[in-house]
Nucleic acid binder design. Structure first.
Length: 161
DNA sequence: GCCAACGTTGGC
DNA sequence: GCCAACGTTGGC
């Protein structure tokens, strides 16, 4: 069974909540990407992500917003445990372990960018204009990224390849 | 702090 | 199934 090619993603997180530096210091440099409660974002994680996929770790609601580091998908999709916890702010009473509504993957830090690449800088590059994050009003917290876009962002961030 | 864009909810 | 109201996101 041939493995599908690596795919690329952009995942948003508020750095005040969990920055790229937080991820680097986490056990195994890995965290559960919990709390996503948007169906499109969930579908990307549940249906399309595979271990080893590349992730642009994006700082949203930040000054400035932008891509801080490279991460990777570090688990198969599995149900988000916070949906079952009545004490958790992401509790979903309509979900059940038998029929979980919300899914996530683990994300592992790979390499911090040599240079932070701000949203303003992303927008300066016409070859990145199709990226969701460059489009006005796009609030999706998990987005697919084209391989060509991935390479451009890496290069802007001072990484080779 | 403002507000545009979007997603969700709930009345009908 | 429509759509107005409301809540959230997130850049500015």
């Amino acid at each position: 069974m041939p493995r599908r090619p690596v795919q690329y993603w952009l995942m948003k997180c508020e750095p005040d909540v969990f920055s790229y530096e937080h991820l680097e210091r986490a056990p195994k440099k890995t965290t559960m990407w919990d709390g996503v409660r948007n169906y499109r974002a969930r579908n990307f994680m549940r249906d399309q992500m595979a271990v080893g996929d590349g992730v642009l770790y994006y700082h949203s609601n930040a000054d400035p917003p932008g891509v801080a580091g490279i991460a990777e998908v570090a688990s198969e999709p599995y149900p988000d445990p916070t949906q079952f916890d009545p004490k958790d702010s992401h509790f979903d009473p309509k979900s059940s372990p038998e029929e979980p509504r919300w899914w996530l993957v683990d994300v592992r830090a790979v390499q911090k960018l040599e240079r932070f690449v701000s949203l303003a800088e992303l927008k300066e590059h016409p070859e990145l204009s199709e990226m969701g994050v460059c489009q006005r009003g796009n609030r999706l917290s998990v987005q697919p990224v084209e391989a060509a876009e991935w390479r451009v962002v890496r290069r802007l961030g001072g990484l080779s390849g």
